[in-house]
Amino acid sequence: MEKKLSEMGYEEEGIVIKILGGLRYKIAGMGIRKGKGIKMMTKQPIKGPVVVTVDRSNTSIGLGLADKILVQVKK
């Protein structure tokens, strides 16, 4: 199933399939890119950021930015 990163639930895992706009240049160096496995670690209340795990590193991403990342979620 395809979802925005911001819509993924706790502990859900998936593969990044698309990163919209200029964001992909910004996060390329952080290891988040098309085809990469990604896991949701936490989500914060009051529209706080998500924290995801990619290649053993944790990255915190604002919710609006997470909207721009599309993920194929594993069932």
């Binding site: 209340p45 009051i46 950021p49 604002g62």
Partner: peptide, 16 residues
């Protein structure tokens, strides 16, 4: 700590 306070600071145009 930055991750935890992000939501609040977001309200004033800053972030965690």
């Amino acid at each position: 700590l930055a991750v935890l306070v992000d939501g609040v600071l977001h309200k004033i145009g800053l972030h965690g």
